[in-house]
Simulated assay, not measured.
Amino acid sequence: MGTVMLGVSIAVPEPYGSLLQERRAGFGDAAAHGIPTHVTLLPPTEADESVLAEVEAHLARVAAAGRPFSMRLSGTGTFRPLSPVVFVNVVEGGEACARLQQQVRDEPGPLARELQWPYHPHVTVAHGIAEDAMDRAYEELADYEAAWTCSSFALYEQGADGVWRKLREYAFAGGPPGVPPQSTPLGEPAPTHH
Rank of each mutant, 00 (worst) to 15 (best):
1 M>C: 12
3 T>E: 15
3 T>N: 14
6 L>D: 13
6 L>F: 15
7 G>P: 13
14 E>M: 11
15 P>Y: 10
18 S>L: 13
19 L>Y: 12
20 L>R: 08
23 R>A: 15
25 A>E: 13
46 E>R: 14
46 E>L: 11
51 V>S: 03
51 V>K: 06
54 E>W: 04
54 E>G: 08
54 E>H: 06
55 V>E: 04
60 A>I: 00
62 V>H: 07
70 S>H: 10
72 R>H: 06
76 T>I: 01
77 G>S: 09
80 R>M: 09
83 S>T: 08
86 V>Q: 10
86 V>G: 05
91 V>K: 02
91 V>T: 15
92 E>N: 08
93 G>C: 00
94 G>Y: 01
95 E>V: 08
105 R>K: 01
107 E>C: 08
108 P>H: 00
117 W>I: 03
123 V>S: 12
133 A>D: 10
134 M>I: 05
138 Y>P: 04
141 L>H: 05
142 A>D: 06
143 D>L: 00
143 D>C: 00
143 D>Y: 02
146 A>S: 11
149 T>G: 14
154 A>M: 03
158 Q>I: 02
163 V>E: 01
165 R>K: 11
165 R>S: 15
167 L>W: 02
169 E>A: 06
170 Y>E: 07
174 G>K: 07
177 P>R: 02
178 G>H: 10
181 P>V: 15
184 T>W: 01
185 P>G: 12
185 P>A: 11
188 E>T: 04
188 E>D: 09
